[in-house]
C-alpha cells in the first residue's frame, strides 16, 4: 500500500524533531522538507539521559545547536514573555566547545567545557547577562582525575571547593565525586 507523497508529509509533521532530521536521509525529496526549518536543535537528546534546562533570570536556558550559525548557542526561553532568544556560548573560545554544559551558581550563568588542548575543564562565567563579550574564564581545572568526558559541576562547598561528578546520569556527589581540593587544585569561586 503506497501513500501519496503529500499525505506522507502530513504524517512527518507528527514526528519528533530528531527522527524528522534523520529521515532527511530517506531521499532527495525528503531532504528538502524545509517547511520544517528549526532555528535550534538540541543535539543532546538521548532518551536515556535527558538534560534539563537551567533556570536563571526568569528564563530556562539550554544548550542547542543554531542551524544557521552552525554552532552551539545558549537558548533562553523567557517564561514571562514566552519568547526564545539566544546568546553565544563563550566568546573567542578556541575550537568548538565539546562536552559543555550550563551551570547556574552564585547568581551567575556559567558554562563549563572540556579543553582538550590544555587537558582542563574550563569554567566560565557570564559576568553580565546576555552580554556575549562578558564571558570570563574563572577556572581551568586539571582533567586527569576524570574518568570520562562527562564531567559536570554540582555545587560548591563552604570552603569554596567545586564538587562535580563524572556520571551525569547519577547526579549525586558520591562515588564519582571529584573534590578539587583533594586533587590539589583549589578552585575558589
Amino acid at each position: 500500500m503506497l501513500l501519496p507523497q503529500e499525505l506522507i508529509f502530513q504524517i512527518l509533521l507528527w514526528l519528533p524533531v530528531k527522527s524528522l532530521i534523520r529521515f532527511k536521509c530517506v531521499s532527495n525529496t525528503w531532504k528538502e522538507v524545509e517547511g520544517l526549518h528549526f532555528p535550534y536543535v538540541n543535539r543532546n537528546i538521548h532518551e536515556e539521559e535527558p538534560k534539563g534546562g537551567s533556570l536563571y533570570n526568569g528564563a530556562i536556558h539550554s544548550l542547542d545547536f543554531h542551524n544557521d550559525l552552525e554552532t552551539e548557542v545558549i537558548v533562553a526561553f523567557d517564561l514571562m514573555e514566552k519568547k526564545l532568544s539566544y546568546m553565544l556560548l563563550l566568546c573567542d573560545y578556541e575550537g568548538s566547545p565539546m562536552h559543555c554544559g550550563l551551570w547556574v551558581y552564585g547568581e551567575f550563568l556559567r558554562a563549563y567545557t572540556m579543553n582538550y588542548v590544555n587537558d582542563t575543564v574550563d569554567i566560565f562565567v557570564m559576568k553580565e547577562y546576555k552580554v556575549n563579550s562578558s564571558w570570563t574564564l574563572t577556572h581551568a581545572l586539571p582533567i586527569d582525575v576524570i574518568q570520562n568526558d562527562d564531567f559536570s559541576p554540582l555545587c560548591c562547598t563552604k570552603s569554596c571547593d567545586i564538587v562535580g561528578t563524572d556520571d551525569p546520569k547519577d547526579r549525586k556527589p558520591c562515588g564519582s565525586e571529584i573534590n578539587w581540593d583533594n586533587v590539589n587544585s583549589h578552585a575558589s569561586i
Binding site: L2, C25, V26, S27, W30
Partner: peptide, 14 residues
Amino acid sequence: VEYVRRYFGIENDF
C-alpha cells in the same frame, strides 16, 4: 532510514 523507505515504498535516489 531503510525501514522508512520500505514502509512508504520510497526509492533511495541518493
